[in-house]
Amino acid sequence: MDIDQDYTKNIQISKKTLLIDKLKKWARLTPSYFILGIWSLFTAFTILWVTASSFKSNRQLFKETWKIPTELHFENYVKAWTTVKMGTYFINSTIVVLSALVIVLFISAPVAYILSRVKFKGNNLILTLFIAGIGIPVQLLYIPLFVIMTDLGINNTMFGLGLLYVVVSIPFTVFILTGFFGSIPKELEEAGVIDGCSDFQVYWKIMFPLATPGLITAAIFNFIWLWNEYQIALVFINNPDLRTLPLGLYALSNAMQYTGDWVGLMAGVVIIMVPTILLYVILSEKMIAGITMGSVK
């Protein structure tokens, strides 16, 4: 009887302990969840308000600022796309960002694979140099890069801008892909060698497909940064016809003091936001899987 009572008492103590631990955990995490929740609501509200405002007229925007538009003015997008040349800027951004993205992944993936799977003298030093490259402010490189690109004759060109995007994106991409390749079991690599695969075949037919979530994650991070990049394009692009979307939006916002077409500005903002939002919505699951994969060694 005493044994049963002691057992029951221990169970009750254990339940109380678990309950106290859960309450402590919730008390510790609640402020973080609260801040993230408020920030998420603010971000969602801002996106929805800008999108709704882009379908209003200028008169309705100032008269009924917080109301849902009763009539959709699609001409705002037509005007932003054609008259303000946002369509041209959209094509410029698409060409330079996608081409830079493909080249970055094409260069960074094999480099990260070798640094994570092949042990050689200076391996850690090279990886450290890539990590150090992430910490170098790109603003410090503007003057020497401007001089070099001018001497090469590629300043103020789409090719030159794409080349700069590739160079500044490689250190981060190599760093993040090194973790992904390092998390893949070595037995899969050894099985490929036993089956007669060469080193390149092991990389291309086994390791590269397995690292797809990591490649998608790196692609999304780079795309979002390059798609919204402003400073490098501002310094190295002077031709109005070669502007990217952020430069075009900045020019549009400056023109507002003369035209007052604020709904056109809202339409331009939506044009910039849509690709990144769609990319994240479509590939969010693979991105989360890639982040989880790269965190496990």
Results as ranks from 00 to 15, higher is better:
101 L>H: 09
54 S>R: 13
49 W>K: 13
258 Y>L: 10
238 N>Y: 03
275 P>L: 03
84 V>F: 15
192 G>R: 09
276 T>H: 00
272 I>W: 04
13 I>P: 05
115 L>N: 02
95 I>C: 01
25 K>V: 14
154 I>K: 07
55 F>R: 03
234 L>P: 03
137 P>H: 01
222 N>P: 05
220 I>Y: 06
120 F>T: 07
284 S>F: 12
126 I>W: 05
243 R>Y: 15
57 S>P: 08
253 S>A: 15
137 P>M: 11
213 P>V: 09
139 Q>A: 11
145 L>Y: 10
224 I>W: 06
114 I>V: 15
134 I>A: 05
116 S>Q: 06
116 S>C: 05
100 A>K: 08
115 L>C: 08
136 I>E: 07
90 F>K: 00
77 Y>E: 12
28 R>P: 00
133 G>T: 06
30 T>I: 13
85 K>V: 14
162 G>D: 03
183 S>Y: 04
13 I>Q: 10
152 L>P: 09
178 T>K: 09
194 I>M: 10
70 T>D: 06
67 K>W: 10
231 Q>M: 15
176 I>M: 14
184 I>T: 04
50 V>L: 11
246 P>S: 07
143 I>C: 00
135 G>T: 05
179 G>Y: 01
137 P>N: 00
199 D>Q: 08
51 T>F: 15
89 Y>K: 06
34 F>H: 07
106 F>V: 12
160 G>N: 02
88 T>W: 10
63 K>H: 07
35 I>N: 05
130 F>R: 09
21 D>P: 03
26 W>H: 13
192 G>F: 04
71 E>P: 00
108 S>N: 01
238 N>E: 01
164 L>G: 12
125 L>T: 14
201 Q>T: 10
270 V>E: 07
60 Q>F: 14
77 Y>W: 07
156 N>G: 04
249 L>F: 08
110 P>E: 05
57 S>A: 05
237 I>S: 05
223 F>D: 04
46 T>K: 09
184 I>D: 00
191 A>K: 06
60 Q>T: 11
51 T>E: 05
13 I>M: 09
293 M>D: 01
148 I>W: 11
144 P>I: 12
66 W>R: 02
71 E>Q: 14
198 S>E: 02
130 F>I: 05
191 A>N: 11
112 A>G: 08
164 L>M: 12
85 K>L: 11
89 Y>C: 08
18 L>S: 14
186 K>Q: 13
272 I>H: 01
212 T>E: 10
251 A>F: 12
157 T>N: 06
